[in-house]
Computed example of a mutant assay.
Amino acid sequence: MKVAVWDTYVTKKDGSVMHFDIIAPEEIRDTALIYGYGKEYLKTKAQEGRALTSKECRFCHMETVRPQWEAEIKQKGYFIVEMENCR
């Protein structure tokens, strides 16, 4: 399975910037859906209401799905890779 990687930077409520990737199947091209995935994730981090638009989230590249992502993508439709300041 090929997946799209969406590079995402969101300013948190405390002013720091979280960096995470949204991993979704390559056929999903609707940015509103991708941003929705990001907003769902932000809720789990008590960061609901933060801006998440094309300014914060951009398509980066395609790659082959990694085994540790696949089950969650099949269940939820996406996977989040936490990079920086996601705790």
Rank of each mutant, 00 (worst) to 15 (best):
E27D: 14
A4Q: 05
H61R: 14
P25W: 10
L42W: 04
W69F: 15
Y9I: 07
L52S: 07
E72R: 10
K74P: 01
I23R: 00
T11I: 11
E26V: 06
A71V: 05
G36E: 01
I28F: 15
P25L: 13
R58W: 13
Y37R: 04
H61C: 13
K39F: 05
E70K: 08
D30M: 00
Q75S: 15
K55H: 07
T31V: 14
D21N: 15
V10S: 06
S54K: 14
S54Y: 06
T11P: 02
F59G: 04
Q75K: 14
E72C: 05
A51V: 07
H61Q: 11
T64H: 14
A51G: 02
H61T: 12
K13I: 08
Y9E: 05
D30I: 01
G49L: 05
E56Q: 15
P67C: 09
D30C: 01
Y9K: 07
F59Y: 15
Y37V: 05
I73F: 02
A51D: 08
M18W: 02
G36A: 01
A71Y: 04
D14N: 09
V17W: 07
D21G: 06
W6H: 07
I34V: 13
E72S: 08
T53F: 00
L52I: 12
E63T: 13
S16Q: 02
W6T: 02
A46K: 08
P67K: 12
G38S: 09
Y35M: 01
Y41H: 10
D7A: 03
F20Y: 14
I28N: 06
V65H: 04
H61A: 13
K12Y: 07
A24D: 05
W69P: 02
Q47F: 03
K12E: 12
K55E: 07
Y9V: 02
D21Q: 15
W69K: 08
V5C: 09
I28H: 06
I34E: 01
S54M: 12
A71M: 01
E56P: 09
A32I: 08
R29W: 07
L52Y: 09
W69H: 13
T44N: 04
T11S: 06
F20Q: 03
A32V: 08
E26A: 15
P67A: 15
R50S: 07
P67T: 13
E48P: 01
V65Y: 08
V17R: 13
E48L: 03
V65W: 09
P67F: 15
G15F: 10
E70N: 04
T11A: 10
A71C: 02
A71R: 04
I23H: 00
T44E: 09
K39T: 04
L42Q: 03
I22F: 14
L42H: 03
H19L: 12
G15L: 11
R29Q: 15
C60M: 12
Q68S: 08
E70D: 07
A51T: 10
S54R: 13
